[in-house]
Design a protein around this nucleic acid. Sequence first.
DNA 1: CACGATACGGAATCTTCCTTCCGTTTGTCA
DNA 2: TGACAAACGGAAGGAAGATTCCGTATCGTG
Lengths: 193, 193
Amino acid sequence: MEAATQPSQRPMRADARRNRERILAAARLAFEEGGVHAQMEDVARRAGVGVGTLYRHFPTKEALVGELVGEKFRLLLEGARDALDIEDPWEAFAGTLRRNAELMAADAVVQDALMRSEIDWTYAEGPRSELHSTFAVTVERARAAGVIRPDFTIDDVPMIMCGLCSTMADGGPGGAYDWRRHLELMLDGIRAR
Amino acid sequence: MEAATQPSQRPMRADARRNRERILAAARLAFEEGGVHAQMEDVARRAGVGVGTLYRHFPTKEALVGELVGEKFRLLLEGARDALDIEDPWEAFAGTLRRNAELMAADAVVQDALMRSEIDWTYAEGPRSELHSTFAVTVERARAAGVIRPDFTIDDVPMIMCGLCSTMADGGPGGAYDWRRHLELMLDGIRAR
DNA sequence: CACGATACGGAATCTTCCTTCCGTTTGTCA
DNA sequence: TGACAAACGGAAGGAAGATTCCGTATCGTG
């Protein structure tokens, strides 16, 4: 979330800082809608800058997408952290999955990111692994409390989110799938019986 | 599975018929591995023909992929038909999902097809809708028997398969996801309790 | 076996995007 | 305000793939 160009150096010119924000805002918008398919030129246009400027701030499309994915994962991480304060073990677990699913539903890039491997994970690796280990605590707590099936592990979570994201992103031959229902079905499969 | 070029006309030259088969075989192979990403030139090379010949038989990549998707859906349809002969309503339902999931796992194009909307469904529409209505019978039977949750409908099935396919196709940052497990979790969520 | 009609091969063309380059503009500092 | 580095804009350059074109080779028939 800070300068991507220089690790230190003088503070970055005012217009540059402003443009960087504009670009990120435009990218959020463009990628929310079009997923990875959104084009660099489109992002530039929305930001009101030339492509050259866009590339001055983010050396490749991957870097730009990576920044957004990282941003999203930081939000997911927040969700996982908040889960630690929720008393009820099932609520902590299921509630967080629901909340974070909503976050994922909000934009298409990250859905694409979670599904296609075409994205350079290095940009979001930090938040991703931290999310993993943070939510692991909640999973363990739920299991210890006996509210989820005993064979469930934190490693099942990414898979579930992957499946879920695909139902958000797509929406078969008809209209759109009801991904919230998909999640509820899955939660019922995970809950101890 | 018959001539795509002419609705009637004279019988198609011997070498042409042979090449058509070769192309389909090569395409099956190439697309099984690479999904929609497999390239037309690659298909042609594997078939031992030039791209020109490939295009003589299938006017676009979409047409070729469509043919394969249709082929796969015909297999899925068979699965759904066989389900009608299975006594136990739960076995008929769950067993068919398992069997057809295996079929889907066998090649990547159709997974892509089920997920991304980038594919022209007209080519597989027939088998697809027939599959839908055929399996609806088994779903209804399972519900009537009280072995699946009462709010489950046939329309939930494509969504589930979509989610499932994404876990086959991808396999997150680590290796590959265990999609069979994904299916079992989901089945547990669907089964009546 | 000779002659069209068909089919073939694959280089060339077209498209779609991402990325680079460089002449111009703008912010900053003295 | 003048000088200079930093930043800008957007036309041009590439790369990857799908698709077309057309001269050549092959099949099927009289």
